[in-house]
Every structure is written in structure tokens, then in C-alpha cells.
Design a protein around this nucleic acid. Structure first.
Lengths: 213, 213
DNA sequence: CCTACCGATCGGTAGG
DNA sequence: CCTACCGATCGGTAGG
């Protein structure tokens, strides 16, 4: 097929290439997952058929079932990649020996980095609505992450380092609403670096747009 | 059917009730559209079937085609409701005789109000991916709105009223990323008023979270 | 002449 | 990975 994609065995973070495997060359699970998430993000998870995916892979529909048990397992694995990254960033921030406001800013920067490194996975995560068990499990992990953010915000408010006229929960929602919105427009080909993006988010969120004169 | 919903003839903004019509009582276009958008937001537009919608309405699937030509017309009408509201807010802000930074803050507040008043319609709009002609037309109107916001930001930067270390386009995206994220969690039953929400967004975006000491 | 549907069925496609 | 299928459902339309 002319749509055949380049097959690599790299892990998602771009680590070491996998050792040369015996057997028929082709896709490994990682490559199938990567293409699946592309298709899910283009057509929506519900709108994407296994037929769409097989066409994109250039293999038969049933060939996909060699790698995974079904469409929902692809979704679960993809959502876990996004959630694992965000959760690890949250744990790192929580473990830091710094004031809460510093941990919060660190978390925002790390979350932007995770979002860009795992962009297709996080994009998919942020569109999940909760119509299946897999989606509801992902939403539960998201809520746990949101609670972690809100607790950091609350601590920073108690320290007197951030404004107290907005509830910690609302602050956390708006702050990460801004962070998460990056998936709506960011493209890897964009000239904007992760550092520039994190700087912009932190500048607006912590110091505001207005110039004081 | 036990799922039959309450039928009203009110227009979306809650205007005057429609005059008593002749003919069989039941749904009018407005009521069908309202229920359709509910279903679209629950299952996703692609995932929602006309069968789902007919069940929710308590009428036969073919009965829906009395009101609209098809599923896509429901989508188009719903997206127009959201886009008309946002665009009118943009035009009002543009026409104001005030500094750009004031017009920008007014637009943010008006956009929050439109978002809450037309929540299901704006929610649907923000999930559109561009897979059909109707969706692409909606995305084109969204881009025009984004350009209007970016031009206001640029003008405010030139006036020296907001920070110039972030490009107008990026500023506009992050600012409205925060605004738009409200649809992800806001529920009409929530205790938070539109004014409180708009205040919180403007406080964070224009003055920042950090307390200066 | 209008509004608001019903019961049945079309050709085609979904995930497995 | 492929071929050959399944039970179920898709959006849409016919006449009344």
C-alpha cells in the first residue's frame, strides 16, 4: 500500500532501539499503538473503525488482533501512557522539598513537558467522556491528578504565596485548563519549544498579562 | 415512553414562548435540537446514532426527519448557535470606544457568559475535529474568532498595557484555552455564578496567581 | 392544508 | 498476519 508507514521499534520516549527480533518483519505493539492513537485522534475513538486502522497500517483488520485483544485495549494502553506521565510528574512535585508555590510551578512545567512528549496520548486522554469502563477508569485517574493539583494550590494559598480570593479547586481547574488547551493547537512542527511554552503558561498564570506601571 | 421529555417551545435564549400552533402536539425543531445536542455531547457526535436520539425523544427514528434533513443538519444548527454567540461578543468588543486591554477583558467576560448560556452548544463546538464539510465550516468560523482575539491582544501589547514577551497569538490561545476549559467541568447546577467565574478567569489572566510582597 | 409522526425496510458497514 | 465470514447496527427513506 502507498500508505504504508515507516516502522520503527523505538519505545515512545525515544529510548534505545529494540534488539533485532526473529520472525516476520512488520509492526510491533508499540508501532500499532502509535498508529492507532493517530487514527483515534483524527476520527474520534468512536468514529474510528478497526477497518480505518488496518488501512492505515497496510495490514488486514484481523492482523491487528495478533497484537491486541481489541479496540478497547488499544484505548486503555494509550490512556495509561498519558496518565503515567502526568502522575509521575505529580509525584515528583509532591516529593520536592520546596514551598508549595514552587512545587506547583514545577508541576506546571513538567506537565507541559509530558503533554508535548506524549502529545497524541494526552490529546486522546483529554477527549475521553466516560462511556465505557476503560474510559471511566481513566477519568478516575484524572480526578486523582486534579486532586493532587488542588492540594498543592491549597497549600500555596495557606502559605500566602498565591491569591486566596479564588478557591483552590477553581484555581487548579483554570490553571490546568490553560495547560491542557495546548493540545488543541500545538503541532510538533511548530517553532515553539517546550521551554518557551512552559515559560508563557507560568508567566500568565503566576504573574498575569497586565503590565503594572 | 417513560423517557418522554418535557416539551417547551421557548427559543434558546429563553425568549417569548412561541404562539400556540395548530396540528399534533409534540416536539418542535428547537426541542429536537436541544435533545440532540445532549445526546451528541454524551456519546460524541460520531458515536451518537439517530436511534439513540429517537429513543431519547420517545418517537420513531423517521420522525426526526420531519424536523431536519439529517444528522448533519442538527450538527450545523448546534454549531451555529455557539458560533453566533461568540461572534456577536467579538463584534461588540471590537466596536467599543475603550483601550484594547479593556475591550479584551470585556470580550473574555462576554465569552464566559456565552459559554455558560449556551453551554451544550459551545461544548459541542469545542469538540469538533473537521472530518466533514459542516465541521470544517465551523472550524473556519472559530479561526476567524481566534484572529479577532489575537488582534485585540496585539493592540493591547502595542499600547503597552499587557506584557510583550509572549506573542499575541500564543497569548490569545492560552487565554481562551483557559476560558474554553470551563466546558470540561462546569455544570448548570454548580454554585459558581457566571460573574464569579469571569472574575476568576480575568484575575488569573490579567493579574496572575502570585501575591507580590 | 398543516404538524407530527409510524412501521417497515433499503444498501452498506461496524467490531470481532 | 490473511480469508471468509457472523450477528448486529448504521443513517436514511418509502408510503400512509
Amino acid at each position: 500500500m502507498s500508505e504504508q508507514v515507516t516502522v520503527t521499534a523505538d519505545s515512545p520516549g525515544g529510548g534505545d532501539p529494540a534488539p533485532r527480533r526473529r520472525g516476520r518483519p512488520g509492526y510491533d505493539l508499540e508501532a500499532v499503538l502509535r498508529v492507532a492513537v493517530e487514527v483515534f485522534n483524527e476520527r474520534g475513538y468512536d468514529g474510528a473503525s478497526m477497518e480505518d486502522l488496518s488501512r492505515r497500517l497496510g495490514i488486514a483488520k484481523s492482523g491487528i488482533y495478533h497484537h491486541v485483544s481489541g479496540k478497547e485495549e488499544l484505548l486503555r494502553m494509550a490512556l495509561d501512557r498519558a496518565l503515567d506521565g502526568l502522575w509521575e510528574a505529580g509525584e515528583r512535585a509532591r516529593a520536592m522539598e520546596e514551598p508549595a508555590v514552587v512545587r506547583l510551578e514545577t508541576l506546571v512545567r513538567d506537565a507541559v513537558a509530558v503533554l508535548l512528549e506524549r502529545l497524541p496520548y494526552v490529546t486522546l486522554l483529554l477527549r475521553v467522556r466516560g462511556n465505557t469502563e476503560v474510559e471511566r477508569a481513566a477519568l478516575a485517574r484524572r480526578r486523582a491528578f486534579d486532586a493532587l493539583v488542588a492540594s498543592l494550590v491549597e497549600e500555596a494559598e495557606q502559605d500566602g504565596d498565591i491569591r486566596t480570593d479564588i478557591s483552590p479547586r477553581l484555581t487548579a481547574r483554570l490553571l490546568f485548563g490553560m495547560v491542557n488547551s495546548i493540545v488543541e493547537w500545538y503541532r510538533p512542527t511548530s517553532a515553539t519549544s517546550a521551554a518557551t511554552l512552559a515559560d508563557a503558561v507560568c508567566a500568565i498564570a503566576f504573574d498575569g498579562l497586565r503590565v503594572r506601571r
